[in-house]
Every structure is written in structure tokens, then in C-alpha cells.
Simulated assay, not measured.
Amino acid sequence: MGKTLPQIDDDLKAWIEKQKMFFVATAPLSPEGHVNLSPKGGDSLRVLGPLTVAYHDFTGSGVETISHLRENGRIVIMLCAFEGGPRIVRLHGRGEFLLPDHPDFGKLLPLFPPNIGSRSIIRIQVDRISSSCGFQVPLYEFKADRTVLDEYARKRGAEGLYEYRCENNVTSIDGLPGLSGLADKART
């Protein structure tokens, strides 16, 4: 049975922190634009308060989340239990991306494990929390986090990642601004 929750309480926070993976979805305003859905892993999601969460965003091949947040701010995080009792939680809200020059970036970054691949921190003011059963979500056994992204980031180095973002994170697949005009601010 699905239900909405008024806030992230201590029990929900503990459950969120145990999850090894979550999904982030955003969409442009245009009906012709592409909806984006990305899996996220590692130790990259934090509950900052009863209605605020943040995740560490790493340099990647696309920049859809940042582009959509620039355009309209809409975002949802979905977590589902792959171990233990069945449960799905969705955190709907308005998001913002914090680049390294943002005053709060330096305050939030220490909450996450160090990672050279850091691109931004996505902070979300949650306005709707829903929980549902997840009876059909399969059980999986967690083996380990993948290390490929960390190894790639170390190999490229800070300058190489900056160059990659300048080449690949300037606009979304639909041509929306991503890091365009923000490339120097995205330098870490």
C-alpha cells in the first residue's frame, strides 16, 4: 500500500543510508525532449535534513541532470530495497547543482568520500515523499562498488577531467545548456 510521508524521519534516513544504489530522474519542459533516468551508486547520497538531500555528482558522458535543473529544477530520486524487506521510496522536489565555486559546495563536499571525479553536488529540497511496497523488486546480493570511474578519473587527472567536461558536458542531448558558460566554474 502506497503512502506519502511528511518528512524524512530517523528510520527513513537510516534505510536510505543503507541502500547501495538509487536512481535520479529529470525531464526538460519540452514534450519533444528526452526524459533522463540515471542509476547512481557508491557512497554518494546524503540526507541533510527532514526535507533536504544531496548527492555527489561525478564527471560523466552526459549532463542531462544539470541541464534539466538549469531549465526547470524538477527532480525525483527513487530508492528500492534489493535486500531485506520490500520497499520503494521516491523523493520528489526541486534541485540545484552546486559547482565548486558555489559557497555551499565546500561545506557539503566533506560529507562524501574524496573523489577526483567530482563535477558538482546536486541538492534537492524535497516537497513530496512517497513510499510503496516494492513487492516485485527482485532480491540482489551486493558484491562490491565498481572502481572503473574512480580509476578513469585518476588516470585523466583534474586537468583531463576539466577538458572532458568542456568537450562533453556543455549541452544536453536536446541542446539545453549544461556546463556551457559555466566551464571555468566546473574546474576542480
Rank of each mutant, 00 (worst) to 15 (best):
V24Y: 00
D174M: 07
G85C: 04
R90L: 05
A54E: 00
R94Y: 06
G134H: 00
I88Y: 02
G33V: 05
P100G: 02
P86V: 03
P110I: 08
L51M: 07
G178K: 10
L176H: 02
A153I: 01
T188W: 05
R74D: 09
A27V: 03
R46F: 09
I8S: 13
E32D: 15
F112S: 04
R123C: 04
I129T: 01
N169I: 04
I173G: 15
Y152H: 07
F82P: 00
F23M: 13
R123H: 07
L111V: 08
Q125I: 03
P110W: 06
E167S: 12
V63C: 09
L139E: 12
F142Y: 14
A153V: 02
K107C: 08
R154K: 14
L45N: 02
R156L: 14
G117C: 10
G60F: 06
W15L: 15
A14I: 03
V148L: 11
Y162S: 09
A14T: 15
C133E: 04
L149P: 00
A27C: 08
V63A: 03
D184S: 09
E151I: 05
P28C: 04
G60Q: 02
I116C: 10
S131V: 12
F105L: 10
I116M: 14
V148I: 06
A54D: 01
F82R: 01
I77S: 03
E163V: 05
N36T: 07
S118C: 08
K185D: 09
F105Y: 15
D174P: 11
